[in-house]
């Protein structure tokens, strides 16, 4: 009894201690989230005022709409392009640079440098590279002889290549991040495990698949989840490189672009924007849970 009453007496103190962080969490996370969920079933005028509820059915309407389904499919394709290629390239570079060779620090710096590049800078750089009349690629005549699309209409302006081109820019921008994480993972693999496998006769590929990969699997899982979530939330690339286009196919209108893009079909409808945003949040949550569940069993977290 004494313990119980003392616990009761401590409750005000506990709330006082939790207060500051609770306040921040409420103000900046829970309130906006709740507000967005609520806004998702409202409709407003073009200025975003005079909102009134139109019912939770708005969410189902969004899910059923062609625009949302198209944007989701584009987003999934974007993730399926950027995540595997980015991961393989990042692991490949990290393994190459994980050797005690002279000058390796230089390459490590180069490989990880994109982590210090903002999406805006990276996208602008790629915009200039891919520009169909004065871009670097457009001036390699042998290249655009093989791939005329580079010049006409331009990789970013062709509905078949636009998403891949945006994807390449995004892969490049995320490479430094993957490289650093995987490098750290590689360095945590004990040297003796490689040596033991080497003495036992395992060649480079055998050591990579039997020793390196399983031992960096926690890093790979983490990187995959983060890259996927970044791909689903990517916005700057589409905004700067293609504006969600080329139209009319809307080849690069991802879910985020549908929510916020300047040429999005719902750009003047706060209620629909909120509904799509909430749906994206739910999809990402489910996807991350699925990744941890699915790969979690195969991931080995040390002895």
């Amino acid at each position: 009894m004494a313990i119980k009453s003392r616990r009761l007496r401590e409750i005000p103190l506990a709330f006082a201690m939790l207060g500051p962080s609770l306040l921040v969490l409420l103000t900046f996370v829970l309130y906006p989230l709740g507000k967005a969920v609520w806004l998702g079933q409202q409709t407003c005028d073009v200025q975003g005022k005079n909102c009134k509820s139109v019912g939770w059915g708005q969410y189902t309407n969004v899910i059923k709409s062609d625009q949302f389904q198209h944007a989701l499919w584009v987003t999934v394709k974007f993730a399926m392009i950027t995540v595997p290629i980015g991961l393989v390239l990042g692991v490949g570079l990290a393994v190459l640079a994980d050797k005690q060779l002279r000058g390796m620090r230089f390459f490590r710096t180069i490989f990880s440098s994109t982590i210090a590049t903002s999406v805006a800078v990276a996208s602008l750089m790629w915009l200039f590279l891919l520009q169909p009349s004065v871009g670097v690629l457009a001036n390699l005549s042998w290249l655009h002889n093989i791939f005329p699309v580079i010049k006409e209409p331009g990789l970013l302006n062709d509905s078949g290549t636009a998403l891949w081109s945006v994807g390449i820019s995004s892969i490049w921008a995320n490479l430094g991040f993957t490289f650093i994480l995987v490098t750290a993972g590689l360095q945590s693999v004990p040297k003796e495990m490689h040596e033991s496998a080497y003495v036992d006769g395992a060649g480079g590929w055998m050591r990579f698949t039997n020793v390196t990969l399983p031992l960096i699997s926690p890093t790979l899982l983490f990187t995959t989840v983060v890259l996927t979530s970044r791909a689903f939330q990517a916005y700057g690339e589409m905004d700067l490189l293609t504006n969600g286009g080329p139209i009319p196919q809307d080849s690069t209108t991802t879910v985020t672009y549908l929510i916020y893009g300047s040429s999005s079909i719902i750009k003047n409808n706060d209620g629909l924007q909120a509904a799509v945003a909430v749906l994206l949040f739910v999809i990402l949550l489910a996807l991350s849970a699925l990744q941890f569940r699915g790969f979690g069993k195969r991931v080995h977290y040390g002895s």
């Binding site: 004990p190 003796e192 033991s196 003495v199 036992d200 020793v211 399983p214 031992l215 080995h300």
Partner: peptide, 29 residues
């Protein structure tokens, strides 16, 4: 190469593969 020297090595840290069963560890060579 070490593998052609007919030599095996036991390390101070044992260098066992944590993701493999005891049997798979022993079978590895």
């Amino acid at each position: 190469e070490p593998k052609d020297r007919d030599v095996s090595m036991v390390f101070q840290s044992y260098a066992l593969y944590p993701h493999k069963s005891v049997q798979a560890n022993i079978e590895f060579p």
